[in-house]
Design a protein around this nucleic acid. Structure first.
Lengths: 293, 293
DNA sequence: GCCCGTCATAAGCATTCGTGATGCGAGGTG
DNA sequence: CACCTCGCATCACGAATGCTTATGACGGGC
């Protein structure tokens, strides 16, 4: 299970073709064929169906493992490269959209900052692989509880902000007058699924603990990145939205009611490569210093 | 960063010697020397000090990455080997000591079971690498919240039991008369640290959220595996112990007071290789079926 | 000061790995 | 229906990698 073989395997699957993969990797088609053959004999398994080229069930499993492995490998290399590299004068930050709010934006240095908005799950990856010097992720957690992040590499996470959660409903909604809402009251409601602009509902489904698939049905799925649009959708009656309270206010036609049970907050965390906090100076230190104080 | 090179690197560090590592790996000393040299030139870093042989700071970092990588690699191989292997007639269970209680023990099949008690953090590893067919881990979490387990490989975790937590104190202790205790009341107390027999206090320190190092000081460290001994130590006044309530009762000279705040429970989870739940029959299915019902 | 243990380096050799050429089977085309 | 074409498998060869043996360099112990 040489990483090179895994690398060609995943590209073959991704492109659905040996020859295409060979082109992309700079090999000949023959080499790719031999790589796959080597993997299959090594594992004594058939990994791919040819014609069409698609992974077998065993191949699917290998794909999961291979992805994680190659990621960790890249992360390791990036991490160790940092050791030798000269301290950077610029700051690359990867952030999930909702992790960008007054507190985090204010901490950014005045110059030399590149800010990249990426999906939530890609933030740890970006930091681990060195694409970004630091990351900002948001998510839902119990108060002062750390987020559950996939550990692709040794990263340190520190909480930088916690805000209440609010349910956004049309002003005409029967529950709009409440001062607080319990999740139990909303299990049967229709929700807006917005993985990027909003907060994924998986966590709610898990917390609620009901049988899988029950509750929190999706009315409409919004794949854009703008929370105000999401709130507007809620105002228009397309379903309920879940947002950090500060983002949910002042939306025409919508009312934001804080979620009071279960006790959950919208939490933002700063992600750094483990060991990077030792750096005493530079833009990274400036940024993290301002965030932690 | 060939896994072979990493493998020799970690053994060199572990044994503190090139020659020893060569012997263990079945290489010549020369090969080991070249492996290390290859790594160092590839990363353009000095990884080891010679004489004595010890990792440099950069080497320490590599060690972390290498460990995780090799683990995942073994896990991947084990997982895919399972695909080809014939269904097993026996059941190997790796369990942390406190995960073994009435509920889990009752679910074990009558014959063909090997039960291995391992430290908490080794359970996921054992399941991932195929040393065990299934795992039982215990830990502390908020009610109906999953445990935080290191993801060494795609594993599925399902909760099988939750019990209240109790603080064990000498009957003569001023707080022994309470019906419930808040963690805040106990920050300044002396505690028994018992990573195997008891519940590690890290989680409490994290939940309490105080400044690092403050609170929950350790009076005595017990490295044995018997919770009753731990409770007896608490009875003898060596410090407070934290145990699942059922284990903390009926200890002479000690009183168990439930922990009421923060709301935490002692949770036991079943760990299976992801995808293994598909198996319809055999001892694994019997075990998991009984646990989930 | 000599010797022994340990790591580094050099040369030789076997194995591995990638390339180019060729074979083979499936699907499309006239 | 024969033929062509496209795409993966296989083969043989040259290059490169990796391991071994042999030797050198350096420290620490007696």
């Amino acid at each position: 299970m040489d990483p090179h073989l895994l690398r060609t395997y995943v590209t073959v699957v991704r492109l659905g073709s040996f020859s295409e993969a060979a082109r992309e990797l700079g090999y000949t088609q023959s080499a790719v064929s031999q790589h796959i053959a080597a993997l299959e004999t090594d594992l004594a398994l058939s990994l791919l169906t040819r014609r069409p080229v698609a992974p077998t069930p065993a191949g699917e499993r290998l794909l999961e493992h291979a992805g994680a492995l190659l990621l960790r490998l890249d992360a390791a290399r990036a991490d160790l490269d940092r050791f030798a590299a000269a301290p950077r004068a610029t700051l690359d930050v990867a952030a999930s959209p909702l992790a960008l709010h007054a507190r985090t934006l204010a901490a950014l240095p005045a110059t030399g900052v590149t800010l990249r908005a990426v999906p939530r799950e890609r933030v740890p990856v970006a930091v681990a692989t060195g694409e970004a010097d630091a990351g900002l992720v948001d998510g839902v957690a119990a108060p002062s509880d750390p987020l559950r992040l996939p550990d692709v590499a040794p990263l340190t996470a520190t909480g930088v902000a916690e805000e209440p959660l609010a349910v956004v409903l049309p002003t005409t909604h029967p529950l709009a007058g409440r001062t607080g809402l319990r999740l139990d009251d909303l299990v049967d409601a229709r929700w807006l699924e917005a993985p990027t602009a909003g907060i994924p509902l998986d966590r709610l489904r898990a917390v609620h603990g009901g049988p899988a698939g029950r509750g929190f049905r999706t009315a409409l799925r919004y794949e854009g990145g703008d929370p105000r649009t999401l709130a507007a959708l809620a105002a228009a009656g397309h379903g309920l939205a879940l947002l950090p309270l500060p983002l949910a206010t002042d939306v025409p036609g919508a009312t934001a009611v804080p979620l009071v049970a279960p006790r959950l907050v919208h939490r933002t965390e700063l992600l750094l490569p483990a060991g990077a906090d030792a750096e005493p100076t530079g833009p990274v230190a400036e940024f993290t210093g301002r965030l932690k104080s």
